[in-house]
């Protein structure tokens, strides 16, 4: 009887693993199948067609996403790495405890709330939706991921390395920047890449910051299209052609994100 229960429990555990992997396979297969059917060169090179006409592409969304994610990365990387250096190298007092806690809290704040926040401090004063607002929202979402990854990585650098460099007469700031950060660069880059993969798929914070745009714009104080927002508006539309374009866009987005994720994992595991 006890052996029977034992067998039963572990069979259930295996089955639940199979179930989870099957769901993953199901999702990926649907995105692959529908995406490959819908994708073509136009998707990458053409603007969306007006309602009612078929064809067209999402070049505005692809470029818009690239611009906003790049700006978000430029803003958040120095802030996050600097704050992480403080937490790891200097942070022993109350400030560090509070900031560490707030970083964890920030990681748990729903992305739509970040969108609202940026709306109140950027969009309301500017009186219009803009790409820079979208990029700022994405930057705030990236910060906690990068801070955590960097702090963990810096803490793993052996203390003896710092001492050796200090003993050679280097000032502490150079020890930190040129020895500690450089030794931990792999894990830091991984954290940055993962956070880029995450915000590339964020939709909610862009809905009322960058809004969306049917045209290709490159100025930052105008509404800008992004791939995730376009997927959303096409998916809930009643047109079949838009649905298949939404699948194509999802295919591109998911492939981008999965490739980054797998590359990062390979990158970490290849260390030893």
């Amino acid at each position: 009887m006890r052996k029977l229960i034992d067998k039963l429990v572990f069979t259930i555990c295996s089955l639940s693993t199979v179930l989870v992997l099957a769901i993953l396979a199901l999702i990926i297969i649907y995105i692959l199948a529908n995406g490959v059917l819908a994708i073509n060169l136009d998707f990458f090179t053409k603007l969306p067609k007006p309602v009612g006409e078929t064809g067209g592409g999402m070049v505005n969304g692809i470029i818009g996403s690239a611009i906003m994610v790049a700006i978000a990365a430029l803003i958040s990387i120095p802030i996050s790495i600097g704050a992480a250096i403080y937490l790891s190298e200097f942070g022993k007092g109350y400030l560090a405890v509070i900031v560490r806690f707030l970083v964890d809290v920030l990681a748990g704040v729903p992305s739509i709330v970040i969108g609202i926040f940026i709306y109140t401090i950027v969009v309301l004063p500017m009186k219009r939706f803009s790409a820079i607002a979208g990029a700022l929202a994405l930057a705030i979402i990236m910060i906690p991921t990068i801070v955590r990854a960097t702090e963990e990585a810096l803490k793993l650098v052996p203390q003896t390395l710092r001492e050796a460099a200090l003993a050679l007469g280097a000032p502490y700031w150079r020890v930190v920047l040129e020895i500690v950060v450089v030794s931990a660069h792999k894990a830091i880059i991984s954290g940055v890449l993962l956070s880029i993969a995450r915000v590339a798929g964020e939709t909610a914070p862009l809905l009322f910051t960058a809004l969306g745009n049917r045209f290709l714009v490159t100025v930052l104080d105008r509404p800008m299209a992004s791939l995730p927002v376009q997927i959303y508006s096409y998916a809930v539309s009643p047109y079949d052609d838009w649905h298949s374009q939404a699948w194509a866009a999802t295919f591109v987005l998911v492939m981008f994100i999965l490739i980054i994720n797998l590359a990062v994992r390979f990158f970490i595991y290849s260390k030893e």
């Binding site: 693993t17 989870v20 992997l21 769901i23 993953l24 199901l26 999702i27 649907y30 995105i31 529908n34 993969a197 995450r198 590339a200 798929g201 964020e202 939709t203 909610a204 995730p228 997927i231 959303y232 998916a235 809930v236 649905h243 939404a246 699948w247 999802t250 987005l253 998911v254 994100i257 999965l258 994720n261 797998l262 994992r265």
Partner: peptide
């Protein structure tokens, strides 16, 4: 297996939504 399970967390939520609507 762990990597595959964690990939589920990497898929953006709008992709889940699309899959939800049509599948």
């Amino acid at each position: 297996v762990l990597t595959l399970v964690e990939l589920l967390a990497a898929i953006p939520s709008v992709a889940y939504g699309l899959w939800g609507i049509f599948v």
